[in-house]
Computed example of a mutant assay.
Amino acid sequence: MSVFEEQKTKMSTGQGFIAALDQSGGSTPKALLQYGVEESEYDGEAEMFGEIHKMRTRIITAPDFTDGKVLGAILFERTMRGEIDGIPTAQYLWEKRGVVPFLKIDKGLADKENGVQLMKPMPGIEDLLKEAKESFGIFGTKERSVIHEANAEGIKAVVDQQFELGKTVVAAGLVPIIEPEVDINSATKAEAEEILKAEIAKHLDALPEGDDVMLKLTIPSVDGLYDELADHPRVVRVVALSGGYSTDVACEKLAKQPKMIASFSRALAEGLSKKQSDGDFNALLGSNIDKIYQASL
């Protein structure tokens, strides 16, 4: 079995969750502040990304961050290009931790239109995908849009764009995580999710055999809403984003979704601080990992 097939089997059948370690650009200062690093503690973008890489390294090298509970990890492009203990990050994840590496490829969100935010253009995406697979051993990608309202035209545009990009990712030999996030604060969240489910199903039915994708979706208002999508032959796995919920609330809601596992970012790092001793840091991270793992079973 090739490494790719081994990783795909792990993602489709393994018990655990995906760690989202892909804060980028605008969300990095917020992630660092949550980690106890003030903006006054770094000067410029290079130092900022240096700090976030140290944080991610601390998480990835923690005792509980292994394939016993963590199936995969989503990396920001700079993290992919960085190293841990002299080993490229993605390679370290797979070879030292048994964790499948993914890469965030979107360049952020366009302005809101028709109640949604599409992805910004991604010039040079084919070259990045080729490099990610061949040079860094990346298994799959993640690409995020946001749905704010139950606007059928907007939601169709989001799903069309997601699957169009997904085809490019599949053609590069990678598995895309299609992420049309529904805002947890939307007044029409449940209605938006019904429209979204129908649009996704249409695209899945049109995919040829072998063109497999993953889905990353907001935990739905109706429990089990996405079970049919999880059972679709073109879907490797359906994972849930925490969407701003606290760790406990996100885990409580996820536990009611029999066919979704977590792909949490903020909820994974909740309570962690640069100023903690390694013992305290590892204990708290271990607790967060265990909560998310249990909710994903």
Results as ranks from 00 to 15, higher is better:
Glu5Phe: 13
Lys8Cys: 03
Met11Trp: 06
Ser12Asn: 10
Ile18Asp: 00
Ala20Asn: 12
Ala20Phe: 00
Leu21Ile: 00
Asp22Val: 02
Gly25Gln: 03
Gly25His: 01
Ser27Lys: 05
Lys30Gln: 12
Lys30Trp: 08
Leu32Gln: 03
Gln34Asn: 12
Ser40Met: 01
Tyr42Thr: 08
Glu45Met: 10
Ala46Val: 15
Ala46Met: 14
Met48Ser: 01
Phe49Ala: 03
Phe49Thr: 13
Ile59Leu: 06
Ile59Phe: 00
Pro63Asp: 12
Thr66Pro: 04
Leu71Met: 13
Gly72Lys: 00
Leu75Trp: 01
Met80Asn: 02
Met80Arg: 04
Arg81Leu: 07
Gly82Gln: 04
Gly82Met: 02
Glu83Leu: 08
Ile84Val: 11
Arg97Glu: 07
Arg97Asn: 14
Gly98Arg: 12
Val99Phe: 07
Val100Trp: 04
Lys104Asp: 08
Gly108His: 13
Leu109Asp: 06
Leu109Pro: 01
Asn114Cys: 06
Val116Thr: 13
Val116Gly: 07
Gly124Leu: 02
Leu128Arg: 07
Leu129His: 11
Leu129Glu: 13
Lys133Arg: 15
Gly140Met: 10
Gly140Val: 10
Glu143Ile: 09
Arg144Pro: 00
Ser145Lys: 02
Val146Leu: 10
His148Phe: 14
Glu149Leu: 02
Glu153Tyr: 07
Ile155Tyr: 02
Gln161His: 05
Phe163Ser: 10
Gly166Thr: 14
Val175Ala: 08
Glu179Ala: 05
Pro180His: 01
Glu181Gly: 08
Glu181Gln: 11
Ile184Pro: 00
Glu194Asn: 04
Lys202Met: 05
His203Val: 08
Asp212Val: 15
Val213Arg: 14
Pro220Asp: 09
Tyr226Pro: 06
Glu228Pro: 01
His232Asn: 11
Val235Asn: 05
Val236Thr: 15
Val239Arg: 04
Val239Cys: 05
Val239Pro: 00
Ser242Thr: 14
Tyr245Pro: 14
Ser246Trp: 11
Asp248Lys: 05
Ala250Asn: 09
Lys253Trp: 08
Leu254Glu: 03
Leu254Arg: 02
Ala255Glu: 08
Pro258Leu: 05
Lys259Ile: 10
Met260Arg: 03
Ser263Met: 02
Phe264Ala: 09
Leu268Gly: 04
Ala269Ser: 15
Leu272Ile: 13
Lys274Asp: 01
Lys275Asp: 15
Asp280Asn: 10
Phe281Ala: 06
Asn288Arg: 03
Gln294Arg: 13
